[in-house]
């Protein structure tokens, strides 16, 4: 079953893939761009940011491309005006929820949220800003967590649990009150589990996690090649 090849169309283009693959994977293999924020190759997909929603013919709902497996004969559309409108709204809501001041942010010019806004043509935030009063946790010797810039994508949580195996990060509270926390809500610098590997910093799409001492626009992230890390570890265990 897993090596059965299925055929489908995405944006009118005939494509094919394995039954274990998602719409997002097949789209990317075929250079069809679907925006994502919480998805990162090599980590489990959680489908939480909702930016990758696509339309599937015959279904009244929208489907997250990162967690929807392909099916034979599927007709997928990724770029309708409706979808783009939703994506723009999502990005605007992310900006409105916390304090994003790009011009003085360590990630200015190298930020996935900023790039998304740019790509989607978001030049306005139609929603009133929440301007929450949020802290900066600079207690770690080498890294800084700035909740003002966090979009709650949980890439840091997953990379730490799934790849590093430390599971330092988690999420407390719910909804808009959600916050990334280290261990059981301790200052990062006091964390007993953090190994200081820095993977969370480098998978973070925004300026929420950065290296200490970086000035504005200086935080360039080196995305670790996660599938490669995973493959090497699997081999070692065998």
């Amino acid at each position: 079953m897993s090596d059965t090849i299925l055929t489908l169309t995405i944006d009118g283009q005939p494509v094919s893939g394995l039954a274990t693959e998602t719409i997002l994977q097949i789209a990317r293999e075929n250079k069809i761009d679907i925006p994502t924020l919480c998805y990162l190759e090599g980590l489990s997909a959680v489908g939480s940011c909702r930016l990758c929603m696509v339309e599937i013919e015959g279904s009244p709902k929208l489907h997250p491309a990162c967690v929807t497996l392909i099916q034979e004969g599927m007709v997928v559309t990724t770029q309708t005006e409706r979808l783009q409108g939703y994506r723009r709204n999502i990005v605007q809501l992310l900006f409105a929820e916390r304090n994003h001041v790009c011009s003085v942010c360590v990630s200015n010019g190298h930020c996935e949220l900023q790039e998304l806004a740019h790509k989607l043509g978001v030049d306005h935030i139609a929603f009133p800003g929440c301007y929450p009063e949020l802290e900066v946790d600079a207690s770690h010797r080498r890294f800084v967590l700035d909740h003002n810039r966090c979009v709650l994508c949980t890439r840091c949580v997953r990379v730490c649990a799934e790849i590093e195996g430390a599971h330092t990060w988690d999420v407390k509270n719910r909804g808009m009150r959600s916050r990334i926390v280290a261990d059981l809500d301790t200052p990062w610098g006091d964390s007993a589990t953090c190994t200081g590997c820095g993977k969370c910093v480098h998978v973070c799409p925004t300026g929420a996690l950065s290296e200490k001492g970086k000035s504005v626009a200086e935080m360039l992230k080196k995305r670790p090649s996660l599938p490669y890390l995973v493959a090497n570890r699997t081999e070692e265990r065998q």
């Binding site: 011009s103 003085v104 360590v106 802290e135 900066v136 600079a138 800084v144 700035d146 200490k212 001492g213 970086k214 000035s215 504005v216 626009a217």
Partner: peptide, 14 residues
Amino acid sequence: VGRPFSEMPSLTAR
């Protein structure tokens, strides 16, 4: 207040 000092040159430039 509360911001990392390394941002200050750019923050105060504003």
